[in-house]
């Protein structure tokens, strides 16, 4: 005859369960403690690393690029906050400083280029303004793009536009450039001339005449282009931001 489970057995079972649970908790706590310890070690190491290489971060453009890549792979943006953990690295500070300097250069040259500047001119001017120290000189294009992109948070006032062949321009006036306008800049840049025209765009981009003149006239209205009516064959739209003599002027 099958005996029913007695009160004793149930109690025994319960106690066993509780013991398992306790053990489980203990293991979990151990693991958590270990993880915390590991994180702590990681943080200390990273801080050590940062303090040790703080100068490297500011000085070495390659190092910064690699660090950026590393952070991107593990899904961390060291620029997202100037506070807390990542701030000890000084990476954010470096780019904030750069971003402020970019704004300064853009404002200073707005008078002649209407708020559009090539990244290479920006870099030359920035380096000149930053002074003679070696760590001030080694600013890479990547650094600039990275810092300039951060300025997007101010709305459409700042944007980085690719104009092909690894060339970039930074726009610092309100009013976003459309795909068409970017394509116009692209054409002007790729011909090594500082201008574009309806004919050029029709031939190169196979656009309708209307589309060409609408894009060009828009850039005229935005103050990014100047018009030249003295070429016998066509109206030319010049971009001071691409005109060598303008780039090299004070």
């Amino acid at each position: 005859m099958r005996r029913r489970a007695g009160v004793g057995a149930i109690q025994k079972h319960k106690i066993a369960q509780e013991k398992y649970k306790d053990k489980g908790n203990e293991i979990q706590e151990n693991q958590f403690e270990q993880m915390t310890k590991q994180l702590e070690v990681f943080r200390i190491n990273l801080e050590d690393f940062a303090t040790k290489h703080k100068n490297e971060i500011r000085k070495n453009a390659d190092f910064r690029r690699q660090f950026q890549e590393m952070c991107a792979t593990i899904g961390v943006d060291p620029l997202s906050s100037g506070k807390g953990f990542w701030s000890v690295l000084g990476i954010g500070d470096f780019y904030y400083e750069l971003a402020v300097q970019i704004v300064e250069v853009c404002l200073a040259t707005n008078e002649k280029n209407g708020g559009l500047i090539s990244l290479s001119e920006l870099r030359t001017r920035l380096i000149k303004a930053r002074g003679q120290g070696k760590q001030h000189q080694e600013i890479s294009m990547d650094d600039l793009i990275c810092a300039a992109k951060k300025l997007k948070i101010f709305g459409s006032g700042f944007s980085v536009v690719s104009v092909g062949k690894g060339q970039y321009m930074v726009q610092s006036v309100p009013g976003e450039l459309s795909m068409d306008h970017t394509a116009v800049l692209h054409q002007a840049a790729s011909f090594g001339q500082a201008y574009a025209s309806v004919n050029m765009l029709r031939t190169q981009l196979h656009w309708e005449e209307q589309r060409c003149s609408r894009a060009l006239d828009h850039m005229l209205k935005e103050g990014l282009a100047w018009i030249d009516l003295q070429e016998p064959t066509e109206k030319r739209y010049y971009f001071p931001s691409m005109f060598t003599a303008c780039i090299n002027s004070k």
């Binding site: 005229l220 103050g223 100047w226 018009i227 010049y238």
Partner: peptide, 18 residues
């Protein structure tokens, strides 16, 4: 000045700020 070699400098610009 650089403008002297900039062709559109010799055409009166329609855009006010420019």
């Amino acid at each position: 000045p650089w403008q002297y070699n900039f062709p559109p400098f010799f055409t009166l610009q329609p855009h006010k700020e420019t």
